[in-house]
């Protein structure tokens, strides 16, 4: 999985297959960003594998000129784990949705994150089941009226970041489908991170959940309602770039710099690399209801040895650099062997 030195363009990662999402679907932008990010990272297309589950977003591998595998519902993370451990030299990506990863595939998702398998999981979160035509998903807000909740849901949604952090995730980033620059940046960082990287992309479903992310994606509100975190930089946001995130006791607070005595020195500096995830979790949980902007960008990036690397290291250590023993050599040297002459 060495970067090749060859200059790739997004086109090199694009397959000939016609893309079949609904016109206006947010998934198109994600696909383009993956092409761009892969070109920028520069890993060869034939050393890249994209694995998916079931759902609209899981059609994504068909549109890649890499190795691709369209799996079954919920199992993308498990299949991808197999691919990565079988051949650690591959760059392995997972394309999945909120239903695929967090409902039917919830168990595989948390265990993959816990193991820290070196995968880049792109979680396209449109807060709805699209391919089955509009049922509520594990990320649909409480009370939402959908086809399967005609009187509104009576359950709370998952925040994917909380699941990721709860499963001891080492990398979490968030992006908006229409914000191509930040999305590519997060994907590139995710690809460079050795271990499980979870990239939540908030995508719009034009048919069944149109405008669900509107409060943060519409141009007029985006600047005030989101903050794109940058490693080592002050947490500043807003139309006029004059708002900041400060610590208020145990909690985070959005303030206007220059008002109520707050100066730029009070504004927090983002560090995604601290092993302690307390502050990163608080950032990931920021919401408009709490008067805080939604955090985008790389929120956590604290690498630790990946599962596949530890796995290979154990094999290497056991074999101690000697040529691999054959089964027969092993058996002849084991206990309980006798010879019949």
């Amino acid at each position: 999985m060495e970067t090749s030195g060859i200059k790739y363009t997004p086109k090199d990662f694009k397959s000939e297959n016609a893309v079949r999402w609904c016109p206006g679907c947010g998934d198109f932008a994600v696909l383009n960003c993956i092409h761009k990010a892969m070109a920028e990272v520069g890993i060869k297309p034939h050393e890249t594998a994209v694995i998916s589950g079931i759902g609209c977003s899981s059609r994504l591998p068909y549109y890649m000129n890499t190795y691709g595998f369209h799996g079954i519902h919920g199992r993308a993370c498990a299949i991808a784990t197999g691919v990565k451990v079988a051949n650690p030299d591959l760059s392995v990506w997972v394309a999945t949705g909120d239903g695929d990863a967090l409902a039917i595939g919830g168990n595989h998702f948390i265990h993959t994150v816990r193991r820290n398998v070196d995968l880049n999981i792109v979680l396209l979160n449109n807060r709805i089941y699209g391919l089955t035509k509009g049922q509520y998903s594990p990320t649909t807000a409480r009370g939402a009226v959908t086809k399967s909740s005609p009187y509104g849901t009576v359950e709370d949604p998952f925040n994917p970041a909380e699941l990721c952090f709860g499963a001891r995730g080492r990398f979490f980033g968030r992006a908006i489908d229409t914000d191509l620059k930040n999305q590519v940046d997060v994907m590139v960082e995710a690809a460079k991170h050795k271990g499980t990287s979870v990239i939540e992309v908030l995508v719009n479903c034009v048919i069944f959940n149109d405008g669900i992310h509107k409060s943060i994606t519409e141009k007029e509100w985006k600047a005030d309602n989101t903050i794109t975190l940058q490693q080592g930089e002050k947490m500043i946001f807003g139309k006029d770039n004059n708002k900041g995130i400060v610590l208020d006791g145990w909690n985070l607070k959005a303030v206007t710099i220059g008002e109520n005595g707050y100066t730029i020195d009070d504004v927090l500096t983002h560090d995604a690399t601290t092993p302690d995830n307390t502050l990163q979790l608080k950032l990931a949980k920021m919401s408009l209801e709490d008067g805080l902007p939604v955090a985008l960008g790389v929120i956590r990036n604290a690498p630790e040895i990946s599962y596949d690397e530890a796995f290979e290291k154990q094999i290497d250590d056991l074999q101690g650099g000697k040529p691999k023993k054959s089964l027969r050599e092993f058996l002849l040297n084991s206990a309980n062997v006798w010879e019949v002459k």
């Binding site: 594998a49 694995i51 595998f69 799996g71 079954i72 199992r75 498990a78 299949i79 991808a80 784990t81 197999g82 691919v83 990565k84 451990v85 079988a86 051949n87 591959l90 168990n107 595989h108 265990h111």
Partner: peptide, 20 residues
């Protein structure tokens, strides 16, 4: 690989088979 459940057991296996 000791996986989280039977389904992951076979799905990693399918991934392993895909990967050679």
């Amino acid at each position: 690989l000791q996986m989280e459940d039977e389904i992951a057991g076979i799905c990693t296996t399918i991934g392993g088979g895909f990967a050679g």
